[in-house]
């Protein structure tokens, strides 16, 4: 009997790693390919920076009677105050300066702006997730709703959010609603969609046998929902949440654009474009990207923990 208990056997010893040293480890791991791709991107970026900024730098230096030789222009393309395409180190420096060297309460701090955006994105994410789940439950349980709601849900996402955002902001503003909520609603408008679609799929994922078992026990619809449909939908929910959390951030940023851009990463982007501050724009863009990556990563971590508790087979494990 115990030989059948394969899950209880200890995992095999880890393969020896010392063999071949660091180069061997790098070659077999993912570190090397990742580093290579990053290097290629950086190299292309620098080439782009030189090519795109060259004309402006050259003409300016000629007009100002400054030396306009190849080396002079080349080094100047990496150090412009308002470059067409800033060099990576300029963006990194701007990111460092606006996060580490200014107080986080200052309007010049990216941390301040990121936190403004994050709060409306998270509120929108929460609202959107809730709406998405409720819609999915309705669609799964009431047949009429699938035919009547689904087209609207799909249509809602074909409308460009950039066009909807100002309408929502203005409409809510006229009702006296300003601040975080209008932006959160735009974020929620984007968030609810993947959650609704994923949850409809998840709630209908139990197979015929699993559902018929519930019938043989004469379980009520509520019991079938809580004990079968909902737990079965959890992996689908997390897949949706990872999408929703990142597009929620996009929604919040878009929601900041029509408000006159007082605070938030969207405001920072807009202000940058008003004044031709390309480095500031790129820094805001990178801040948004990093924030989204952190959110998706965090959601992935929560997913792994939850699915582990729910008995998911660890990756690579065999029976």
């Amino acid at each position: 009997m115990t030989t059948e208990a394969l899950g209880a056997t200890p995992s095999p010893p880890a393969p020896p790693t010392g063999e071949g040293g660091l180069a061997h480890t790098l070659w077999n791991g993912t570190a090397l390919p990742v580093a290579l791709v990053v290097l290629v991107i950086l190299a292309l970026w620098h080439v782009g920076t030189v090519l795109m900024n060259w004309q402006v730098v050259h003409d300016t230096r000629v007009r100002m009677d400054q030396p306009a030789g190849f080396a002079d222009v080349l080094s100047a393309t990496f150090a412009m105050e308002r470059p067409i395409l800033p060099a990576p180190h300029q963006i990194v420096h701007e990111l460092w300066r606006t996060t580490m060297e200014v107080p986080t309460t200052s309007r010049r701090s990216l941390v301040f702006h990121a936190q403004v955006t994050l709060s409306s994105a998270m509120l929108g994410f929460a609202i959107g997730t809730l709406v998405g789940i409720v819609l999915a439950i309705g669609i799964v349980h009431v047949r009429v709703l699938e035919a009547s709601l689904m087209p609207w849900i799909v249509a809602s996402q074909t409308v460009p959010i950039l066009a909807v955002a100002p309408i929502v902001i203005v409409a809510l503003g006229s009702m006296g609603l300003t601040g975080v909520l209008p932006k959160a609603i735009i974020a929620a408008y984007l968030c609810f969609f993947p959650v609704a679609i994923g949850m409809v799929k998840g709630l209908t994922s139990p197979d015929v046998l699993q559902r018929e078992l519930m019938r043989t026990w004469s379980a009520s619809p509520a019991q079938t929902f809580w004990k079968l449909r909902l737990p079965a939908s959890v992996p689908f929910l997390f897949a949706s949440l990872k999408v929703a959390v990142s597009i929620g951030l996009v929604g919040a940023i878009v929601g900041e654009l029509p408000t006159g851009a007082q605070a938030g990463l969207g405001a920072r982007l807009l202000a940058g474009s008003y004044f031709g501050q390309t480095v500031q724009m790129w820094a805001a863009l990178f801040a948004a990207a990093i924030l989204a990556a952190v959110l998706v990563f965090a959601m992935g971590a929560v997913e792994r923990i939850v699915l582990r508790i729910m008995g998911a087979r660890p990756e690579g494990a065999r029976r």
Binding site: E212, S218, A219, K227
Partner: peptide
């Protein structure tokens, strides 16, 4: 009134429940 227990061709255990959790499921219901 739950007069019978039914065993299908496939075990159809709920994968997110432990073996005990699966056996107690009808009793929970």
């Amino acid at each position: 009134r739950r007069d019978y227990g039914y065993v299908f061709q496939a075990p159809a255990l709920y994968p997110w429940r432990t073996i005990e959790g699966n056996v107690t499921l009808p009793l929970e219901i």
